[in-house]
């Protein structure tokens, strides 16, 4: 957020590092069944990659890649994926968030269907955590203005 901050080493390293951070975040979300990880942790890493871009470059770089509209949309779509999977189970005839019933629409047996439902809600949680982290950081760091310069 500091204006006259122009260091080519930091900018280049952060630009190269960001895609790898995001790939790693998706790995942590998707591989959460077999290793330490899951939606909360992967979402935090994904949000941190955007925050790194804000710190190294400036706020406009991030606003070009992730606009505020998209961010707010992802924030609510994550909760909707979660609640939607629960409602899907309800509509198929089981209890709310009882993923075992998903085997009627997925080509797996009932036990694997539970793992699939878990993966679906992890993705929803990851999306919400990522966009909430970015949104809170941008709002607090720029005083709610979403533009360059220190907040008054």
């Amino acid at each position: 957020m500091i204006k006259d901050f122009d260091n080519i080493i930091i900018k280049t390293v952060c630009r190269i590092l960001t895609p790898f951070l995001q790939i790693f975040a998706f790995y942590v979300i998707a591989h959460g069944h077999y290793s330490p990880g899951g939606g909360f942790q992967g979402g935090c890493i994904l949000g941190a990659s955007f925050i790194l871009l804000v710190i190294a470059h400036d706020i406009n770089t991030v606003k070009k890649r992730m606009s505020e509209k998209l961010n707010t949309f992802l924030c609510s779509i994550g909760v909707m994926i979660y609640a939607g999977i629960g409602l899907l189970c309800l509509m198929l005839g089981a209890n709310y968030l009882d993923y075992g019933i998903l085997h009627t629409i997925l080509p797996v047996d009932a036990v694997k269907a539970r793992a699939m439902g878990t993966l679906g809600i992890e993705i929803g949680v990851g999306l919400t955590v990522m966009s909430v982290m970015v949104s809170i950081f941008l709002n607090i760091a720029s005083g709610g203005k979403h533009e360059e310069g220190a907040p008054e």
Binding site: H33, G38, A83, I121, G124, T128
Partner: peptide
């Protein structure tokens, strides 16, 4: 029951999924 070797994930998202739904709503 859940085909998930990571017990933390299976408890978080499957056995106690309703709890995590509330959690997600809190951060939202």
């Amino acid at each position: 029951e859940t085909a998930t070797p990571n017990i933390v994930t299976s408890v978080l998202a499957d056995y106690r999924g309703y709890d995590t739904l509330g959690e997600t709503t809190v951060i939202f």
